[in-house]
Design a protein around this nucleic acid. Structure first.
Lengths: 171, 171
DNA sequence: CAGCAAAAGCAGTGATCTTTGCTTTAGCCA
DNA sequence: TGGCTAAAGCAAAGATCACTGCTTTTGCTG
């Protein structure tokens, strides 16, 4: 039931459907539109819920190369590759369009923060000088997302450059 | 006529109207919905047009304090104050939801790039070591927008910190 | 002033959405 | 097994939206 709905939304978003409404989703999921109207306030709420679920489902293994620069570069590339996938871009846009109060404290940001924290912690234990976790989020993650959202190019070279930049802040 | 439409859109967006459609805009503007249907492909197109107009209308004077750090800090604060205004946030979201090909090469980004370029140029003429223009966009503008989009706090201290960070990249 | 073309208004139609009261099904516990 | 409750389905009504052919206004030009 719920998974059918999530799947339907995922398919529609992936297909780039321009018309995503409760009736449309309901038909695809094989449920009654009323169910959706009763469970979610509006389409955006559902869309955002699915987006969060999709974006936080990380099968991503965290790099552990023995060097923070390597770790961050691989990590940035993984993220770059991930968020530039067409359906992810759509999800991102959906999230941005969603209501503010729901987006704040969204699990996506938290996941990234934890991952960054882990890599930094390992690096510091190795005695490396590192930037802070907020710095990594601000200067690697933010630019990546920014580029995606504004349809600017995101490639390996760009990711590499961001990591290089943030490492100049290491203390 | 056209200004009435733009004004209507501006009001509706500012009020946080959840229901922004051609009929609604038309009534507010005192025009016939048909006019809107004929002139714009869809609501997003109109919304995005107004957004660009509003975001690029810069009465913002570019700081010129004699120091890049001061300039960037003031500039970042101006932008931070500007983009955290409720209607600006809405416009941002509208723009992001708009079609990709329209967003890319959007005037807003260009304006920021030119402004950054101007300040960097002046600083270099003074003999200051400066970060590059892309670095400023990536590490000051991107994080600011990122925070706004994800409803994270954007205050003076944050802006100051971003500028401080980017200046460590000066060469 | 007359005429012409572009733009705006009008009204009607069909499609889609949204909501609501009521019925039916499904799951759970005594 | 029987009943109770929450969730899902159904159907109908009202609202809104999207579009279109036609008329009216506007503004310009000869």
């Amino acid at each position: 039931m719920l998974t059918a709905i999530y799947t339907a939304v995922g398919e529609l978003v992936g297909e780039g459907a321009d018309r995503i409404s409760f009736p449309v989703i309901a038909e695809r999921a094989g449920v009654n539109p009323t169910t959706l109207y009763r469970r979610w306030d509006d389409v955006n709420a559902l869309l955002e819920e699915v987006a969060v679920a999709a974006l936080t489902r990380d099968g991503e293994s965290l790099p552990d190369t023995g060097s923070l620069e390597q770790d961050l570069t691989q990590w940035a590339n993984i993220i770059a590759r991930d968020i530039t996938r067409p359906e992810r871009v759509r999800y991102l846009r959906a999230m941005v369009s969603a209501r503010v109060d729901i987006v704040s404290g969204c699990p996506v940001t938290e996941t990234r923060r934890e991952q960054a924290s882990k890599m930094v912690h390992r690096a510091r234990e190795r005695g490396e000088a590192t930037p802070t976790v907020p710095q990594i989020l601000d200067h690697v993650i933010a630019p990546l997302y920014h580029h995606v959202v504004f349809a600017l190019p995101v490639d390996h070279e760009y990711a590499r450059r961001l990591v290089h930049d943030v490492l100049t802040m290491a203390r």
